[in-house]
Nucleic acid binder design. Structure first.
Lengths: 148, 148
DNA sequence: GGCAATTAAGTTGTGCACAATCTAATTATA
DNA sequence: TATAATTAGATTGTGCACAACTTAATTGCC
């Protein structure tokens, strides 16, 4: 197994920089929507499933309350989302789209198209890359479960 | 091209979570060395090339001085590195390993082995995945250069 | 040689990311 | 049915990551 202690031979380094550079690509695309990359991910979830509770949202994004609480606060200041306490269980907080938040979806529709264009990648390659990343995560989780 | 506005279909999301989860895996492995993941990357570079200047270091890691300055300050507090101003160009600062920093390399040797074991991945797949990630970065840079 | 433009680091401010801790609501159980 | 354990969310503190700005050294150009 590749064990040489060299930066470029570490898969972690390649993942880390690829992720950072892709995020950098999003920045100017998301700027007109007044969203950071993480905020965009939250909006993606809400456009898919409105009135989701913070717990589930955190699980889908692998983010804990220490990250989500202030992030959601900023989305509220932008008037894109609102919090409603669940009636059946007063601990839960449901996150909902405001009319502005719902309307933003239309502008966001073109984000993936722009990114694909920038990556200049064909469908088959795109799918292969997605599968690789999903496989890496599966291996990480498999280990996590062995350990738990 | 995949343009559906769904979280799981975005390559950016898969990259982002894969990177985060892999970094999470490193945390307990690096804890005994008193290093965060980013600090570990800096040490990797130094073990490869001692007396590197901050500018070059930043280029290799895609990090700017705003990130590196405080990070290096913490590595100095740990007595792993020291800064020396270059004599030929007083603007440049060379980063060097202290004896402790050099000694740490031995403990770090086993880090990639542990990670490989956790990922439970064979050499061929590992190499294929590395190449995909490098290709993604190449596409991102190709776009960057078209735009510049 | 003198001065504008450039360059390397550092600083400040904002926003993640996460561990650890706290509070309040709910569930389990003695 | 009290009370202990668990759960959801918020808060605090540390450390990235990066944009924008500052300072000091160097280079370019006249």
């Amino acid at each position: 197994m590749k064990s040489s202690l060299t930066l470029e031979h570490q898969i972690c380094f390649q993942l880390y920089t690829a992720s950072k550079e892709l995020t950098r690509l999003y920045r100017p695309i998301l700027a007109p929507l007044n969203l950071t990359y993480s905020q965009y991910l939250v909006m993606l979830v809400l456009w898919e499933e409105d009135h989701i509770d913070l717990k589930q949202l955190g699980e889908r994004l692998t983010l804990d309350s220490g990250t989500l609480s202030p992030l959601v606060k900023r989305l509220m200041q932008l008037d894109y989302v609102e919090k409603v306490r669940a009636t059946d269980d007063e601990r839960r907080v449901l996150l909902s789209l405001t009319p502005s938040g719902r309307a933003l979806r239309e502008q966001a529709e073109e984000v993936p198209l722009k990114v694909s264009g920038m990556l200049n990648i064909d469908e088959a390659t795109y799918v292969a890359y997605m599968e690789m990343l999903i496989d890496i995560k599966a291996r990480l989780r498999a280990f996590g479960e062995r350990e738990e």
